[in-house]
Each structure stands twice: as structure tokens, then as C-alpha cells.
Amino acid sequence: MPQNADTAERHVVLGFFDPTTSLPPVLDQIRNQGIPDIFMEILSPLPLETALLNKPVRIPLYRLTIIGGIVGIGVGIFFAAGTALLFPLVTGGKPIVSIPVVGIISYETMMLMAIAVTFVATAINIAFVQQSGLRNDPRIDEGSVGLSIQVGNDTAKAHSISRLLQQAGASEVEIRTIASDS
């Protein structure tokens, strides 16, 4: 296990590569060192076309959107039909609950809740997805691709991974030591 909960500090190895470098062989070599994909991360200024790391997705975002939309329909029905029934005032001889109105209001609240829930889930994902030790590096935005590997408190392994990255063609390699959260 690269992570040890009892330790006071952890190491993160960060290598910077030229974007033309083929990363899959490098990732395979790191996996061969016993480090699973969840302890690796690729940093880049642009989204990569193919997912190089196998990381489980906890809840697909679209499911939350659908849940938000369904809740929104409920809110809309409450506003357009529920509030009319709470105070059943007949106006112009028309029915208390107007189905087209319920449709229009529910549509808007459905969209509102679906978009709002998607946004909140996205913001949480972006803000809290970060591995410990990962932070933005201006070199990434200038056109490098970063490969970050968490190696727990194993200093020897950190150096071994660092050498591996250098051999794989990393232009720069850093070992960052981070105080453990535990």
C-alpha cells in the first residue's frame, strides 16, 4: 500500500513531460511498481482525448441531473397546483388547478433544479476530487503534461519512481513531501 494512515507525512512525485511523450508505457511501468491507478493523476492544460487511468466514477453526473429534474417537477407542481389548492380561490369561473400552467411552471423548475444540482455536484467534484499534494502548477498551463504519483511515506519508493520518470523522458521531476491529514 502506498498510503499509510499512521504516518506523519506522505510523498508525491510529480514529473513534467513534453506533451508529445506517450504516457501509457510510463503508466504501465508505474503500475508494475505496485501503484494502482487511484494514486496516479495526469495534469494537463487541456482535456486528453482518451482516459489513460482507470478510476471508478462514484455516481454518474447525469443521474444527479435527472434526480434534480424530478425534484424540480415536484417543486413546480407544488407552486402551480399545490399553492392554488391551499387557497382555492375561483377566478373567472376557471378551474382551481390549471394543467397547462402546471406544465409551464414545472418545466421551468425542472430545468432550474436539474441545472443547479448538476452545478453543485460538479463544483463539489472539482473542489474535492483533488488528491492530496496536487496543486496547480503554472508549468502545466504553459504546455507541459504532469504526472503525479502518491507513494505514501516510502521515501525509497519515491526516489525509485522519480528515477523511473526521468528515464521515461520527464523534463523535470519533483518529490513533494506533504504533512498527512491523519
Binding site: 495534469l43 453526473l61 472539482i126 483533488q130 496536487l134 496547480n136
Partner: peptide, 19 residues
């Protein structure tokens, strides 16, 4: 909000925009 350009973040962002 802590953006550092990881692929997990890009994936989330792209998915959100697509939705």
C-alpha cells in the same frame, strides 16, 4: 475552486458542460 487540471477534473467539467 482548487482547479489544477487533473484528468478527473477535466472529465467532470466536460461532462457537466455536455449535460
Amino acid at each position: 475552486i482548487g482547479w489544477h487540471g487533473s484528468q478527473a477534473q477535466w472529465r467532470t467539467l466536460e461532462m457537466a458542460i455536455r449535460i
